[in-house]
Simulated assay, not measured.
Amino acid sequence: MTDLPAPLFDTLVIIGPGLIGSSILRRGMEDRRIARRLVACDISPEVRARVAELGIADQIESDPATAARDADCVIICVPVGAIAMVAAQVMPVMKKGAILSEVGSVKTTVMEAMTPLLAQHPDIAFIPAHPMAGTEFSGPDAGFATLFEDRWCLLTPPGHTPADAIRRVTNLWEMMGARVRSMTVDHHDRVCAIVSHLPHLLAFTICGTADDLADETRSEVLDFAASGFRDFTRIAASDPTMWRDIFLNNREALLDMLDRFIADAQAMGNAIRTGDEDVIVSRIKRGRAIRRSLIENRQA
């Protein structure tokens, strides 16, 4: 009888089993090559009870330090503004050579907050990750094991990070079904500002605009919503706390992309105002080409 290969991690801890965290747990429960023991941690008794009911973790804890004590890898899956606070709780108890990661969609401010903690705990490898996957739903019920299939996971490891730790986190996300790429934190935040953060800002705003219309018109908007508006409402249904933190923590890159968008929107408006068909058609064709590229890249 052939011995099974050792799992990538003996103990993998997920702090914050929401959409992303519970999806990692579900994948780990299905594929035991990822971790021998899966630990979920959350401060909410309701969340812990639901994780137990779902059966997506081998062990459930309320205290991050208790959960992380024997971990080979800890992944923090909480809103961006709370990542460093949670890291400060777990790093003092993590064993030498363990890996700490997180899944926030903003990296510059996280790295700034983490720098003094990393200096105090040089034996912990910190590898920020951002799985570019999600839905408008949140909580442990929202996750599913195939969430990361064919989606990108962006890693932004500091320059001094051990190569073996990067390899193991890369393997983890590949076992989740994701494609993996590394980049700097600044580049990451600018990319995410245009492909994720600005679209969410626009979705929240256009839904607010519709809601501010006169009562009769607003009811018609809700009654006769076309697919374009419905797509905006799906994005706008996302978690408020998470997106508040993202907007505030990626302020500069997001505002830069917003300024560019406003200029482009004004140019399109001027083309409509003056009947400039060439500009209008050119913009529409560019949008169609981007959509085709997304489909070809299996991202749509």
Rank of each mutant, 00 (worst) to 15 (best):
T2S: 11
T2N: 10
F9W: 01
L12H: 02
I14S: 04
I14A: 00
P17R: 05
G18A: 04
L19S: 00
G21Q: 05
G21D: 03
R32F: 08
I34G: 02
A35L: 02
R48Q: 04
A52Y: 01
A52C: 06
A52R: 13
I56K: 00
D58K: 04
E61F: 15
E61N: 10
D63T: 06
D63L: 00
A65R: 02
A65H: 04
A67H: 00
A68F: 08
D72Y: 06
V74S: 05
I75V: 15
I76Q: 05
I76K: 05
I76N: 07
P79A: 08
G81D: 14
A82W: 08
A82R: 14
I83G: 00
A87L: 06
M91Q: 04
V93F: 10
M94S: 07
K95A: 15
K95R: 15
K96L: 12
K96M: 13
G97A: 13
S105W: 09
A113C: 12
A113T: 10
M114V: 08
M114T: 02
L118Q: 15
A119Y: 06
H121M: 03
P122T: 10
D123S: 12
F126E: 01
I127C: 10
A129P: 00
H130T: 07
M132Y: 03
T135S: 15
D141A: 12
F144N: 03
A145V: 13
F148L: 07
R151V: 04
W152K: 06
W152P: 00
L155C: 01
G159W: 05
H160V: 09
T161K: 04
P162D: 05
I166Q: 09
R167K: 13
R167V: 06
W173G: 00
M175H: 11
G177P: 00
G177Q: 04
A178E: 01
V180H: 05
T184G: 14
D186G: 07
D186F: 10
H187F: 10
H188E: 03
V195H: 02
S196E: 01
S196F: 00
L198Q: 02
P199S: 09
F204M: 11
C207T: 14
A210K: 03
D211Y: 06
D215I: 12
E216R: 14
E220S: 10
F224A: 02
A225D: 03
A225M: 04
A225Y: 04
A226F: 03
G228M: 03
R230C: 11
F232S: 12
R234G: 11
S238M: 07
S238P: 04
T241F: 10
M242W: 05
D245F: 07
N249H: 15
N249Q: 15
R251E: 15
E252C: 10
E252H: 13
A253Q: 13
A253D: 09
L255D: 09
D256I: 11
F261V: 09
F261Q: 11
A263H: 11
A263D: 13
Q266C: 10
A267C: 09
M268T: 12
N270V: 12
I272S: 04
I272D: 00
I272R: 13
D276G: 00
D278L: 08
D278F: 08
I280K: 03
I280G: 05
V281L: 13
V281K: 13
V281N: 10
S282T: 14
I284M: 15
R286Y: 07
A289K: 14
S293T: 13
E296S: 12
N297H: 14
Q299D: 13
Q299Y: 06
A300T: 09
